[in-house]
Design a protein around this nucleic acid. Structure first.
Lengths: 97, 97
DNA sequence: TAGATTTAGACAATCTTTGACAAGAACTAA
DNA sequence: TTAGTTCTTGTCAAAGATTGTCTAAATCTA
């Protein structure tokens, strides 16, 4: 499940209008629409607010958000998988210290 | 081995001066210095040229470069590992189609 | 159809990245 | 030491990318 889909489905489950969500997180309705369509990426602050407004576990949302940044960096690259694995190893070795 | 280290050690192995590498890739000497110190990230075009100038396997350099973009996105995050794994899965499933 | 919601396009504002220059630090050789 | 060379650092403007806002059009619903 992709971030934009999750946001949209959660909003629909809760029967909220775009403008309601928008006002809860201090944003333009059009912006929320774009986020749900995947045309715009939420900022980190917006992720925090969206988690509250839509009652989604914050870490779940943040994980998805981070993972999409990663994905965008490497998508379409032949070496995508290798590159991600290298980054993963680096993170893991760093954590041990 | 990190990208900046690799570039520097390769240059030294080949006994090249910063200004020589700089001219080979059409860049300012100061910029090469910063890249070797990790203060600046090379662009993709610079990676291509550096691979040739320093005689490094292109895919090796590109992998490192991509992996550092990924690393920068998630470093310091508690959820870094989870996020990377999610991205990895996504890439893998997409490749199957 | 009317009224409400959602989407799309265009543009300005903001933030980030990049490249260039100049001055300073470090090193080498005589 | 000094002169000459290499490397590093800081700053700034240019270029690029992202974000938010506005408006109008499209879609939906009753």
């Amino acid at each position: 499940m992709i971030l934009s889909e999750l946001l949209k489905s959660k909003r629909e489950t809760k029967n909220l209008l775009l403008r309601e969500v928008a006002s809860m997180i201090d944003a333009d309705t059009a912006l929320i629409s774009k986020i749900e369509k995947g045309d715009r990426k939420p900022t980190r602050e917006q992720i925090d607010k969206l988690a509250i407004a839509l009652d989604i576990e914050h870490s779940k949302l943040l994980k998805l958000w981070l993972s999409e940044k990663v994905y965008e960096d490497v998508k379409g690259e032949d070496l995508a998988i290798d590159a991600i694995k290298i980054a993963l190893k680096r993170i893991k070795t760093e954590e041990k210290n």
